[in-house]
Structures are given as structure tokens and as C-alpha cells.
Simulated assay, not measured.
Amino acid sequence: MSAEATLALAVAVPAQLAQVDALMRSAFTPYVRRLGREITADAYDWFGQAIAQGDIYIALDGGEIVGAIATRPRGADMELALISVSPMRQKSGIASFMIGRVAEIARSRGLQTLSLTTAEMMEDRIRLYRRHGFEIVRRGLPEHGKDAHMRVHMERVLAADA
């Protein structure tokens, strides 16, 4: 039985904020450290509002939150701002499951693209996103200026998926 067979995607609710925050921190700490930084205490202060707006999706395996995607709607695009999987469950198909389901949601809303940004040095992530139809549309330094690692901005056109 595949990991996908036991997973469900749901919209996060306010009562799950602490769990989503903890999951994101545990998943992103190694990534951010590779960039030479640490996650600040206030880095995810925007999650409460995002959950209230229905913009954070969680992957559930039974009652356990094993993944989360924080999105930012922008016109005809849905940005996948953060994609995280529980460190103990990484490389088991959860990220692929979530990306696929969120793409279905975006398409059902009539959105035209999904977009995301990742560090250019994170080649495994770039390969994952390419497997899901994302292409690099530009490269550049991060707007936040907290590190000097190049980022790749990727996009997936949903209209061609139908």
C-alpha cells in the first residue's frame, strides 16, 4: 500500500496552529541552517492569519499532521510559500501527494499557475518540483536579504494540465 493511500488533505483550522508551526520549524530548520541562518521566533507569525483565510493545507495520516503547505493566493496564481513534511516521514511521497492535491484545488478555482521559490543549492527540491511540472522561470537573490544564496523561482502552468 502506498503512503498516498492512507493520506488525506485538509484545510488547517485555528486549533492546529501550534502543530503546523512546530511541523514547519522541524522540517525547515535543516534547510535554513544550510543557508547559514536560523529560523527566527517570529518567522511564522503570519500562519494564524493564513489559517483563518484557509490558505494552509495539511496532510493527515489518521489524525496525525505529517505535512503542510502554506499558500498565498495572488490573482490567477497560487504561491506555494512553504512546503513541509515531518522529518520522520520525508522521502515517503507526502510532499508529492500535497502538491498534487493543492494543484487540483487551484485548478478547481480557475487559477492558472502555481509558483514557488527555493534555494538553487537545494537540488533535490528542484528535482521534486520539476517532477510535478514546475519549470524555472528566473533566478535571483532573495528579496529578504538575510542570506546571499541564489533562489530559483519556479512556475507550473495549470491550464495545460487539463
Rank of each mutant, 00 (worst) to 15 (best):
F28K: 03
I51F: 02
D21C: 10
A159H: 10
A3G: 14
Y57A: 09
D21N: 13
Q49H: 15
G63N: 13
A12L: 03
I65H: 00
W46N: 11
R139F: 04
L158Y: 08
S2M: 12
V32A: 06
A3W: 06
E143W: 04
I136H: 02
G54C: 05
V32P: 03
S26F: 03
A103C: 09
Q90E: 10
S108R: 11
A119H: 08
Y31E: 12
A15L: 10
R89Q: 07
A103P: 07
E143V: 11
A43K: 12
Q53F: 09
F134N: 01
E135L: 07
A162L: 10
P73F: 06
S86M: 04
M98H: 03
A162H: 09
H153A: 11
I58G: 00
M154N: 03
R34D: 14
A148W: 11
S96C: 06
R89C: 07
V137Q: 05
R101N: 13
V85E: 00
V11R: 06
L116C: 14
E143C: 06
L141P: 11
T117F: 02
R138G: 04
E123T: 13
S108W: 08
A119I: 06
I69S: 01
H144C: 14
A76P: 12
G110N: 10
D124M: 06
E4M: 14
R74D: 15
P87A: 15
G67W: 00
F28H: 05
I39D: 00
F134L: 05
S115I: 14
A8E: 15
E135C: 03
D77P: 08
A15S: 14
L60A: 06
R89G: 04
R72K: 13
P73D: 08
G133K: 02
R34P: 04
F134A: 04
A76C: 11
P87I: 13
Q49E: 15
E123A: 14
G75S: 10
V20P: 03
D124H: 06
A162S: 09
L35I: 12
A160I: 14
R139P: 02
A18V: 13
L17R: 06
A8Q: 15
S26L: 10
L9Q: 05
H149K: 07
Y31G: 07
R156P: 02
A52F: 10
M154S: 01
I56N: 01
I136K: 02
I105G: 08
R107L: 11
